[in-house]
Amino acid sequence: MFSPWYAWSGRRDPADNCCINVATYGPGGRFTMTDRGRDALRTTRDTLQVGPSRMHWDGRSLVIDIDEVSGLPVISRVRGTIKVTPRAITGVELPLAADGGHVWRPFAPVSDITVALEAKGWHWSGHGYFDANFGTRALEEDFDFWTWGRFPTSAGATCFYDAVRRDGSRFDTAIAFAPDGSARSAIAPPRTAFKRSLWQVKRETRSDPGTVPRQVLGMLDAPFYSRSAVRTRLNGETVTGVHEALDLARYRNPLVKAMLAFRVPRRRGWAEPGASR
């Protein structure tokens, strides 16, 4: 949804602008997001392949085989396997627009993950998560700004979605997930602002009164987007989770899309290794 090439194409053929985006953080972190043409796309009931990388559901885990090249500022191979094993699969779908034009689908909000990439320090296991967004329109058509956060808790995980639509209306929701995948609406503490990102993207999330959230790990900074690990306090419990802030008013700016193209190269053609064309 953040491919400038897809936007410039008039959004006519999403299959012609596909990618598997990989980001690693910390020392030696890499970012890969290669926009590929429809020749690179292969799908079956259990497998999504885009060029040399693929995701496959084996009945118990989502196995993600990565073979990509990172973009600027450090160009190198990013290879290896990531496995996400859900504790449970939810049936939750949350419409973000009244007409269903945007939907959030948290498939597995409580999961286990193992990462084995071919680089020093890129092997670990821990707490994981898997969700998806679906839409029939561009996000910037309907929204000006949103924040999202997922915070592991002693009872499972809590997700917050807070958005400002272009008509000025707000969308605020909080959902608590148990390890068995069951979900319930949660009472959200107040929305609380905290320090802006390096690109001065506004940031806020939920926190108990008297607590100011703070970033404990920077993950991804862009002129319109921030992803970070944030520590806050929810209903008396100190938690650390992944937080995103998205400024879609900025993303509508054609200059921002042109800047993004340097991080998202376009590769139109693709052939399986050994195949003749």
Rank of each mutant, 00 (worst) to 15 (best):
V115C: 10
G121K: 03
T153I: 05
L248E: 04
W57A: 14
G218R: 13
G168W: 11
A261S: 14
R250K: 15
T44D: 13
A40T: 03
D16Y: 02
D142V: 10
Y161N: 03
W148Q: 04
S125K: 15
Y25F: 06
S228R: 09
R214Y: 10
R77P: 01
G51L: 10
P95D: 05
H56I: 06
R42L: 10
S207P: 00
T34C: 10
K195C: 08
A229L: 14
M1G: 15
T192L: 02
R38E: 11
E272N: 02
Q200D: 14
G128Y: 12
R38Q: 05
I75E: 06
G101E: 14
L248I: 07
W199K: 00
Q49N: 01
Y25S: 13
A23I: 13
T81P: 00
P254C: 09
L117E: 11
W8T: 08
S70A: 15
Y251T: 00
Y225P: 02
V110Y: 14
R196H: 05
P254G: 07
Q49W: 09
L260C: 08
F107P: 00
N235Q: 12
R227L: 14
A275Y: 13
R252V: 07
S226E: 12
T114G: 01
K202G: 02
T205C: 14
S228N: 07
M33H: 09
G100T: 08
V239D: 06
A7Q: 13
V50T: 11
V50L: 15
T232M: 09
G80N: 02
E93M: 10
V84H: 03
T32R: 01
D58R: 03
R150G: 03
